[in-house]
Amino acid sequence: MTDATTTEPTGGHSRDLSGARDMIVCENVSKWYGDFQALDKVSATIKEQEVVVVLGPSGSGKSTWIRCINRLEIHQEGRIVVDDVELTNDLRNIEQVRSEVGMVFQQFNLFPHLKVIDNVSLAPIWVRKKPRSEAEEQAMALLERVGIPEQAQKYPGQLSGGQQQRVAIARALAMEPKIMLFDEVTSALDPEMVKEVLDIMKALALSGMTMMVVTHEMGFAKEVADRIMFMEEGQIVEEGTPTHFFENPTEDRTKLFLSQIL
């Protein structure tokens, strides 16, 4: 890990992660919704501290895939191993994986009946069994980190979309996860709020968090990703560094997608 010492502010794609541990391993993961195949033999390995951005047109299976990684969706074929724990129907494995994998959603999904501080500290208190005072201290530190400590005593409904999404990130971080999943976290935001959320994600990537990000923000992908994966029709069509992906993609479908988007 060299980023912390180099002056380059962002962009993990220059670093060498070949020696790092495997955090997420997917082997031939397939999933069907009825007759519709959402994932078609998806295989990938994500290293510790790696930032992977998943791109693709809507309906290509990106969200389904990352939702399989903390078992919000159940894959029907193949293997998913997260931090050496395989996801099976065993509830203990699922709970262990979920407490190590943080997730941020497109629609924030904050708990509307709880104050911001309680949104953040609830899971540490009850899942991690931390004393309340310690959990609240940690929650305040996290709110500080995402830049909204003054909103701690408000309810989510009183915050703007960008602030809500930052609380959601703090809530996921409160469980001290090893991996963070971001499922189109800026898609429901007004344009002027996208940056405040992306900035936090960049800082998080810099701190060495393993991240999987589904997004439509090409700028973010270029700047922060170690690796970009392009999905279409439930398959990973192409993957590579941002330079490779944006400047000389090999697949025709990738070129078509880029030409539509850029």
Binding site: L72, R98, S99, A123, V127, A174
Partner: peptide
């Protein structure tokens, strides 16, 4: 909403915790 269930599950709550708190 389903999102509330998912958010509770994603932070590792058990079914009982999800039901009681969320």
């Amino acid at each position: 909403t389903r999102g509330q269930h998912e958010a509770a599950e994603a932070v590792g709550m058990t079914t009982a915790q999800k039901t009681v708190f969320i």
